[in-house]
């Protein structure tokens, strides 16, 4: 399998006066073609920054991001070698669809970034019709406005819009967090089917571990701008190596898990943290003195890595 996305020592630091906020810190990761990489983390973990760098909303402050071998950013300028190759489905379909456009206008909008010939060919009514039927919408919906649709239908519109340019890579940024459970299931099924039919690669950003587990083949756990653990879904869920991953997994209020098991939580905040200590030191329930030096990403089995001394 070849890598479709490669990130090499990518960082994104924001400076505010004297303060530097490391939204993403020296991140190295690659996404293989056909994979569904899940990106998990809580607010402030840098997972949305990760997405922004890939889709061209913000330039990295260091490192290189390559898409099919070619750099995506050249000196703060986002390079689209083939426009429409990378698409995004955002979390909130309420605000990601322009309220003053019809569904048809919304769906064909991405085509205006393509060359005229390509646009004409993909814009054909047959093509459009086939696409909207595939995502579960009807022909008569095309002339309506977003406010006439429910959240689930809006997300289907957003998915159709992302697919119209026939991309090979789609970033799904919390695509179902704003939806009800019954509708979430419809959308997740649709995304899975589309992936198989079209041979897509997904980056699936979410804070919901059970959605990630269901959707992804590989998972990366972000904490404060750093990947602390990465591995195949099976390995990571069955045999988590990083204490933060364990806390995340056990915090999830699941219906089906044993309620009696002891749930591990964060430790009380411990301040004394040297320049080089582990980023999780402050809250780690298993910290020791060794953690005053930063651990490196180490292999923990086949395709499984974690940043922890233990």
């Amino acid at each position: 399998m070849t890598a479709i996305i490669e990130m090499d020592q990518v960082q994104k630091h924001y400076t505010k006066g004297k303060l530097t906020i490391k939204a993403l810190d020296d991140t190295t990761i690659s996404i293989a073609e056909g994979d569904v990489l899940g990106l998990v983390g809580e607010s402030g973990s840098g997972k949305s920054t990760f997405g922004k760098l890939l889709i061209g909303l913000e330039p990295p402050t260091g490192g290189e991001i390559r898409y099919q071998g070619a750099p995506l950013w050249k000196k703060n300028k986002y390079v689209r070698r083939k426009p429409g190759e990378l698409q995004t489905v955002f979390q909130d379909p309420q605000s990601s669809l322009d309220p003053r456009m019809t569904i048809k206008e919304i769906i064909i909008e991405p085509l205006y970034a393509l060359s005229k010939n390509e646009r004409k060919q993909k814009e054909s009514y047959d093509n459009l019709l086939k696409l909207i039927k595939r995502v579960g919408l009807k022909e008569e919906h095309l002339e309506r406005y977003p406010h006439e649709f429910s959240g689930g239908q809006r997300q289907r519109i957003a998915i159709a819009r992302a697919l119209i340019t026939e991309p090979s890579f789609i970033i799904l940024d919390e695509p179902t967090s704003a939806l009800d459970v019954s509708v979430q299931a419809q959308v997740l099924n649709l995304l899975k089917e589309l992936k198989e039919e079209r041979g897509l690669t997904y980056l699936f950003i979410s804070h919901n571990m059970s959605v990630i587990k269901y959707m992804c083949s590989k998972v990366a756990v972000l904490y404060k701008g750093n990947i602390v653990e990465i591995g195949s879904t099976e390995q990571l869920f069955n045999n988590p190596q990083h204490p933060y991953t364990e806390i995340l997994l056990s915090s999830l209020p699941s219906l089906f898990e044993n309620k009696e098991k002891a749930i591990e939580g964060f430790a009380e905040t411990a301040q004394p943290k040297g320049e080089n200590s582990c980023i999780f030191y402050e809250k780690c329930p298993r910290r020791t003195d060794q953690c005053m030096t930063s651990p490196a990403l180490e292999s923990r089995g086949k395709d499984h890595f974690a940043v922890c001394h233990y």
Binding site: I55, G56, L57, G84, T88, S96, E105, P110
Partner: peptide
Amino acid sequence: LFVKSAQTFGIRPFRIIRK
């Protein structure tokens, strides 16, 4: 978000302004 998403599609600025 809808302007941001138009930007991610690579739509030219004047079209974003107009549309």
